[in-house]
Amino acid sequence: MAATAPTKPSNIAQNSFVKALAESSTLNSVPSQFSFANDSKASHSDSIPIIDFSLLASGTTDRRAKVLRDLDNACREWGFFVLVNHGIPDSLLKAIIEASLEYFELPEEDKRRYEAKSASDPIKSGSGSVINTANQKINLWRDFVKSYVHPEFHCPDKPHKLRDVLVEFSEKTRSVARKLLQDIGENLGLEKGYMDEVLKLDSCFQLYAANYYPPCPQPDQAIGIPAHTDHGLLTFLIHNGVAGLQIQHNGDWFNTNSPQNSILVNTADHLEIFSNGRYKSVRHRAVVNNKATRISVVMANGAAPDAIVSPAVPLVERDGRAFYRPMKFIEYVETMLSNRFQGKSNLDCLKIQDDTELKTHCSTY
């Protein structure tokens, strides 16, 4: 069914944020600027791996060995896993969701201060858009706030409690990510400390992102975030209990169902590059519904901003060649955030398959 125009088109011009548009009493259809026909049908699966972090940290030798194998399989086969018993207090997970929601409830003039002027802005807020293959701009049915929180900490001034909560959330998630990466390095057969040194993880990059997906009158005619992969090494995601994240596995789409107080983790682009393709950065998307607001909080964990990320040398030696080109981490992130490539991901541009094809598509790096 084709999308119809809203009752009052002026709503689109007046409102910089989707939240205000969605709360309009006259809205009964998706405005044309948001029209993104999609089939959001997905299967339910109980096969998404569950990793018990406590057993990685302090389990017996046999139990730890099993969890290491499970972690390796999760990174190879799914690119996603549910992390339980991670040690981050439930109260902190609840607090970061609540503080993020308070941000979205601020007056528009407060949020508009952080409208992005460039991809390198350390704090960004807005609704966002994508360029489709027909070179058309499509607005997304979500509002967001993003800020760089490590190695330099940035945070919106309001709400006031967000800063303290975000500082603690960044520290706790960074510690868990470092431990997971140590275990992943062990699974890859790398010497202890190799990943830390090469990727400069003492100065690792962290990006906080909170997403607000209000109810949509026509969920099949809009999209929260279209299918994509993430920059970085590991992405952590928590939410307010409203479903909406779908992942692609072997060509099929699956709904995610992470238990309360768990963290959904996905292996991202730079882990695929660093592992020389052993671990995959998997496509995923955020769909919307017409009943409840969804809040998700993401912490993207990456290499140091100035680190040059390329396949690990020991893995290249085992494989006989590198399958990805090197690139400075922060340049990759900012290029990705700028929507510079239309319909082609950064990761595709760094894959070494056919030199002629690679130069044709990605020579502008």
Rank of each mutant, 00 (worst) to 15 (best):
F329W: 09
A37T: 13
K179I: 11
L201T: 04
Q33K: 13
L166V: 04
D348V: 01
G79A: 07
S262V: 07
F274M: 07
R174Y: 00
T173A: 09
L27R: 07
C75T: 13
L190H: 08
N211G: 05
I88D: 03
G189L: 13
S281W: 00
S16E: 11
S170G: 04
A3E: 02
E98I: 01
D202I: 05
E108T: 12
K192T: 10
V30C: 02
T356L: 10
T7R: 13
M336I: 05
G126L: 14
A134P: 06
A222N: 07
D70P: 11
H44P: 04
D220E: 15
F341D: 03
F323N: 14
Y148I: 14
L21G: 02
P311N: 10
V313I: 04
N346Q: 11
M1V: 14
T356S: 11
G128Y: 03
N187E: 10
K200C: 12
D220M: 14
L201V: 07
L71K: 05
L180A: 10
E105I: 01
N339V: 02
A222Y: 06
A209S: 15
N290C: 05
E272T: 05
S345T: 15
S203C: 11
N240I: 04
A99M: 00
K192P: 00
S170M: 02
D183M: 11
L245C: 01
L190N: 12
K328V: 12
P314C: 09
G59K: 03
A134L: 13
Y114I: 10
N11S: 03
M299K: 05
T293P: 05
K146M: 15
V287D: 10
K161E: 06
V145H: 01
F329T: 05
T256M: 09
V67F: 01
A268E: 08
L233N: 09
S262H: 14
N73C: 15
C362Q: 01
D220P: 08
Q206Y: 01
L180M: 12
K291M: 04
K192D: 11
A3P: 00
A42T: 07
L181R: 05
R294D: 06
V242M: 06
L166C: 07
R64T: 07
E77C: 07
I97S: 09
R294I: 06
G343Y: 06
S118F: 05
Y365H: 14
D196E: 15
D70Q: 13
V265M: 06
V165S: 08
T61L: 09
F169L: 10
H284P: 03
A119I: 12
G241Y: 08
P259C: 03
A119Y: 09
N301G: 02
Q14V: 12
V30F: 03
P217Y: 02
V265D: 04
F329N: 06
G244L: 00
I223Q: 00
A5I: 10
Q218F: 04
H239Y: 06
A268F: 03
M195I: 10
S338R: 14
H160R: 14
S24K: 08
N28E: 11
N211Y: 07
K351Q: 12
K117Y: 09
